[in-house]
Each structure stands twice: as C-alpha cells, then as structure tokens.
Design a protein around this nucleic acid. Sequence first.
DNA 1: CAATCCATTTCACATTTGTTAAAAACGACT
DNA 2: AGTCGTTTTTAACAAATGTGAAATGGATTG
Lengths: 191, 191
Amino acid sequence: MESFIQYLKSFTPLYADQIDALTALLTLEKLQPNEYLLEVGMYCNKIAFIQQGVFRIYFYNNEGEEITRYFLAENQFVVDLNAFNNQVVSSEYIQSVTDSEVVILSRTAFDQMSTIIPEWDKVIKAITEKALMEKLFNRSNMVGQSAKSKYLDFLTTHPKLANRIPLGHLASYLGIKQQSLSRIRKEIVLP
Amino acid sequence: MESFIQYLKSFTPLYADQIDALTALLTLEKLQPNEYLLEVGMYCNKIAFIQQGVFRIYFYNNEGEEITRYFLAENQFVVDLNAFNNQVVSSEYIQSVTDSEVVILSRTAFDQMSTIIPEWDKVIKAITEKALMEKLFNRSNMVGQSAKSKYLDFLTTHPKLANRIPLGHLASYLGIKQQSLSRIRKEIVLP
DNA sequence: CAATCCATTTCACATTTGTTAAAAACGACT
DNA sequence: AGTCGTTTTTAACAAATGTGAAATGGATTG
C-alpha cells in the first residue's frame, strides 16, 4: 500500500487518519506472470494501481493476431476505462507480464474515495487526462515511423521496460514482426 | 450558435434563459481555408466548437516534415488540451482546412459555463475522455497496419471527410507518402 | 487563350519490412 | 548433463513502401 500512498501524496497532502481509511478500504492483490486482471467479455468493476510489476493490454485483431495496445508499470493505474465507466464488457485482456502486486480499488471503494480525499475527483481527472494524452501522443508519434525509430523511441521513452518484457510482446506493440525487431536489434548493437 | 446548442442539449436539457446566457457569453468566428486557430508558440486561451468546416492539427517533426496529428469536423471541440489546461505554449498548429465557423469559448467564458449549466463539469469530462479515447483507439489501431488498410479504415471511420481534405494532409495523417496514397487509391478503384 | 500555380498521378528503382522455415539459445525440470 | 518447451535469432526470398523526378490535370489569372 505504501507506494500508492506515496503516489497520492504527490497530488494532495494526506493525514494519518486518511491513510488509515484508505488502508481499510483498499486491498492488495498479487499476480504471477501471465495471470489476468481482466479478460475479454468480463465486466470491469475495479481499478488497479501497480505497485510492482509490468502489465500489458492486448486484444486479437481480425487476423487472430495478438496486438499489444500498451504496457503499464509501477505507479500507474490499469483499467479498461471504457468498460469501467460505461459498465460494458471488456474488449481487451489485461495481463500481468511479470510477478506483480497491485492495489485494488473496487467500484464501491472508488466511489467512496472522494469521502476520504476531498479533491479526489480533480485528482483522478488530472491523472486520467494526462495518461490518455501521453498514450495518444506516443501512439500518434509511432504512426508512419520506421521500425527502427519506433524501437529506439521505445527505448528512450521506457528505458527500464524493454528488458522486462518478451520481445514478441514488444514487437506486437511496435506493430512489427518479431523477426524484424530481432533484425533491428542486431543492426543497432554492432556499428 | 444553433448547432452548438443542439449539441449541448444531447447531454443536458437547456431552458430558454440558459440559452440566452450562452448566446451572450459566447462568440462566433469564421475562418477561411488555411487560417490558423492556434499556432506553435502561442498560448491557448480558448476552446472552439466546430459548427461548420474541417480543421487539422499538425506539427513539424525532426526532419521538418508536416505531420498531421488528426482532423476535426462539425460538432467537435478543437483545442490544444495540454496548452489550455497547463497554460503552456502550444506545440502544434490548428488550421482550418475549409471555410469554417466556430463557437469560441474564451477561458473566462469556459470558467463561467458551470454557472449557466450546473452539470458542465461532468459534461465536459465525459466529452473530453470520450474524445481522447476515440483518438487513442484510432491511432493505436493504425500502428503496424498496411497503408491500404489505414486508408480503407479512414474511409469507413470518416466517410464524409476524405473528399474534403487535400490528399497530402491525409497521407501525412496516415503516416505514408502522398505518392503511396495515390498508388493505393488507384489499386482500390479498378478491380 | 496562354501562363502559372498547385495538387495529384505516374514511373523506375532503392530500401524496408513481411514471410516462411529452420537453427540456436535459453530456462525449467528431471 | 539431458530433455522438453519456449523464446530469440538467422537466412533467403517476396511484397510493400519510400525516393526522386517528371508528367498530368484543374483552377485561376493576366
């Protein structure tokens, strides 16, 4: 719970009794590699905050290929926002890539957050918009880029992530074949 | 002003006095093709709602190429959200592609909206999140797609837009060269 | 009408990426 | 160490896209 509290403190001060209330309200969950936080067709009634680990969000396209939409790691929320907000079934998988530990905010807990933290609505709005805008920015910058620049961009944008995820997943996120990514890595190391 | 009012009514009912207050608060602006609503380096102190016309948001990448980030048309808000929210200078151009007409919400008008429309904060949050998620979804679906599928997707996602914008802008949005787009269009029409 | 400007198309060739298949490397487990 | 299963690399060839330059087309203007 500690790193979630720290994260919240970067947005708004928290007193001891608020922290106690949060600790009572929220739960911890540990996942092993390849376990799912959410699967296609399920309703999404919780938001998770990643204290430890890496997650990937993916789905299957028309050709049956796994497409990784993005990765999320420590100090980020993970949720199917559309499924959670509109109470429709999820259209994507949320899978733990590594051993991981998350703080779970059930829907009822989420709705109670503003009673504990008065500025909760503002905080969550800022976090949501910032996260969406960053993802949109990253994605839109990738369109039309060469495989090599997409890979290099990923390395600079997520320097600690590349060696925590299988290459196949990364290739799928970059929109290239794993063989191409392998070829590119070879080119980059040597010269 | 009429179509903006109609748009708002799809979110929340509006009485005549509210509509009068809105009409007094907001202003209309007309732009010719290639005129700018916002330029790189400017502060963004207004939000525009497109009643008529098409806009494109673009910037220059490291190689000096124009990259079109997206298009916006009737019944959509257009703004550099980061520049507006965080009061930093804009990093992109917002340009009218066609003759166009927008409703301007100055920052002060925007801040007064919740006094006229009690649910304004909720409405604007829903609109913002939905718009960001749609753009993110579109963009992330484009990564790794072939030029042809990106073009066909665009035609189905924005059926009325393709013939309102120059091909060069569309190619830049799709992340391909104009010559490639031309080649693809030729392939598609014939068989 | 000719002249001009700009958007679009076309073409030949270069480069990048996908495809298919196989080999190599790695890890977990016995 | 040996085996199984998975991930990663390699290679040869095919297909898609970029590049650079030129031709075409349409609209506008003198």
